[in-house]
Simulated scan of single mutants.
Amino acid sequence: MTNYCVLGTFRVINDGRDCTPGPPKLRQLLALLLICADHTVSLDDIVAELWDEAPPKTVVATVQTYVYQLRRLIERERLGAPGEELLTTNRAGYAFHVEPGALDAEVFRELSCQSRRDLETGRPGEAAAAAQRALDLWTGPAFAGVTTGGVLDTHAVFLDEQHQRTLELRIEADLRLGRHRELVGELRYLVARHPLDEWFHGRLIQALGGAGRRAEALQAYRDARRILNDELGVEPSRELQQLHLEVLTSDRRPLALAG
């Protein structure tokens, strides 16, 4: 089976062999086709991705040449089954077809959705496991090793946002499982990385409070308030203020989770 990796270093692996195309434009075109797998990518989007506002005069012929070279790669590396047409052409553009489970970005989305469903149906253990499997698919920034244009950059932003939402799902599931002490170090790191993200501040306060580290939880709230005041000129959200109040009135009990 061929595996296509876009969540980190861009790679095409077939039966353990690295079949990633070498020429930068081929890698860029293949990455675009893969992130839109099984959907048609228009010629306009391909041109915008590969050349932005300065396409060559022979742009249509050049794209056709790149597509031909990708088809040669598919055939040479036997990426598909005999007689299978992975890269198809239609009036609207080009589409690359992949088997279920072959593209890491698609597996990531499926696992993330499963994690959310598990959490919503009261199964935090399953939710945490599914979210962690999804996060483990990432080996670095999306499309690493590819020279990206505006279209791929937009997809990368979307993938990064999905990654953070999935990380939040896993943290919330772990909190519901009572893993407060285990989360403290990770949440301190995330607060340092995202100092203006109140969600991470709130989860750090919850983890410290649930671990019985009341003084540190109160300090975490003070730190969050100072950062928000200094950087944005605002007070903490109602949720953070409520968490602060719960820490003040708690007696080593885990703090209630806010949605």
Rank of each mutant, 00 (worst) to 15 (best):
D45P: 04
A105R: 05
L167Y: 05
C19H: 03
E239D: 14
T62P: 02
T166Y: 05
E53T: 14
L86V: 01
L232I: 08
A192G: 13
H244P: 03
A258H: 13
R91V: 10
T2M: 10
E84W: 00
K57W: 03
T58L: 10
A224T: 04
D104H: 08
A128G: 06
E172K: 03
R176A: 09
Q132F: 06
H194Y: 15
R133N: 13
E110Q: 13
V41H: 02
C113R: 15
A54F: 11
S237H: 05
A192V: 02
L70C: 11
L33N: 01
D223M: 04
L87I: 11
A144L: 07
T9L: 13
R76Y: 05
L79N: 00
G140V: 11
Q164S: 05
T166H: 06
R116N: 08
R176N: 14
A130R: 12
P124C: 06
R213P: 00
G125R: 15
D197F: 05
S237V: 02
L152H: 07
A92Q: 13
V41I: 07
D160A: 14
W199H: 09
A31T: 01
D38K: 03
E239S: 11
W51N: 06
D118H: 15
D136S: 07
L103C: 10
E198Q: 15
Q206R: 15
V59H: 05
L228T: 12
V157F: 08
D44K: 07
P141W: 02
R76M: 03
E75Q: 15
R253H: 11
R203S: 08
G145H: 03
A61D: 14
V47C: 04
A105W: 07
C113L: 13
E235T: 12
A258K: 04
R76D: 10
A130Q: 11
A192P: 00
E84V: 00
G93N: 03
Q219V: 07
W138H: 10
C36L: 06
A142I: 04
T40G: 08
L257C: 10
A95I: 00
W51Y: 15
D136E: 15
Q219K: 12
R116Y: 12
L137D: 09
L196C: 12
V67C: 08
A211K: 02
Y221P: 12
R179M: 08
E168W: 08
L218E: 14
T139S: 15
D160W: 07
H155M: 05
G101S: 10
L175W: 02
A258C: 03
L79P: 03
L190M: 13
L119W: 12
D251W: 10
P55T: 07
Q206P: 02
D160R: 14
L79Q: 00
L32P: 05
S42P: 07
V146P: 08
I171R: 02
Q64L: 08
T121D: 13
G149C: 07
L169I: 11
I13T: 10
D251N: 07
T65P: 00
Q162I: 00
D230A: 14
